[in-house]
Write a protein that binds this DNA or RNA. Structure first.
Length: 234
DNA sequence: GCGACAG
DNA sequence: ATCTTGTCGC
């Protein structure tokens, strides 16, 4: 089963047009509570500058919620720099193609994508999690480590598990700022596709979190870094 | 025109 | 995102 081709725009204007079109197909509703197999997606890139030039590595970690463990790790090596530059608000055009390749290499399709980046908490409502979700027609949730767009509603408490809404330009909630553990920087959680607003937060809360990131993403991050350095040598 | 700005 | 060991602090 080959995924549909992922269009890479020639410039930012075309990219924005694609985002606006695809945003209309996003469904912010659905409850992933029964989902068993989750794909945690993260990528590692070489520094433009320093000694090793290397390539980028994207990793898909297949997480079994029932057994609470990783059951498979798939990766894709790619030259992200040649695809598209990193421009805030347009991350998916740089990273999504490699995620699609990694997901395609899993022995079974995941039931939900957990992506390192925004869902609909995005200037045009289509962060990378939403983009991937719509492209693959899979439930998806975005978990970012910093803010791209939006205003917090109130002050986030210090307690683990606390969350406050993240508001769009019209004051409507599009996600949450979420403190997964006490004493750590918060996460930015928003629905990507086929998941409700509240449900996106509840799902992330249901995942084991030993440190800051939920396990599927923490492990994907580690695996991506290891794989990239590994492929940057022998 | 001035900030803000996922990875 | 990445360059990087030890070290400060709860």
């Amino acid at each position: 089963m080959n995924p549909l081709p992922f269009p890479v725009p020639k410039d930012l204007a075309e990219a924005a047009r694609i985002q606006k079109e695809m945003r209309e197909r996003v469904i912010v509703a659905g409850d992933p509570v029964p989902v068993r197999y989750v794909a945690g997606l993260d990528a590692s890139h070489p520094t433009r500058f320093s000694r090793q030039q290397g390539l980028s590595v994207a990793v898909a970690v297949l997480w079994d919620r029932q057994e609470q463990r990783v059951v498979e790790v798939a990766q894709a090596v790619l030259d992200a720099e040649k695809l598209f530059p990193y421009v805030p608000g347009f991350l998916s055009f740089r990273e999504a193609p490699s995620y699609l390749a990694a997901v395609a290499r899993l022995s079974r399709p995941p039931e939900l994508l957990l992506v390192d980046g925004q869902g609909i908490a995005h200037p045009r409502g289509l962060g990378i999690a939403a983009h991937l979700g719509v492209h693959l027609d899979l439930p998806a949730i975005g978990v970012a480590k910093s803010l791209l767009y939006g205003k917090p509603q109130g002050q986030l408490p210090a307690e683990a598990g606390s969350a406050i809404p993240l508001l769009d330009r019209w004051g409507q909630p599009m996600g949450y700022i979420y403190r997964s553990r006490t004493g750590v920087q918060p996460l930015y959680v928003s629905p990507g596709h086929r998941v409700g607003l509240v449900e996106s937060l509840e799902f992330v809360r249901s995942l084991p979190t030993k440190v800051r990131l939920p396990e599927p993403l923490r492990i994907a991050h580690i695996e991506a870094g290891k794989a990239r350095r590994r492929s940057a040598e022998g």
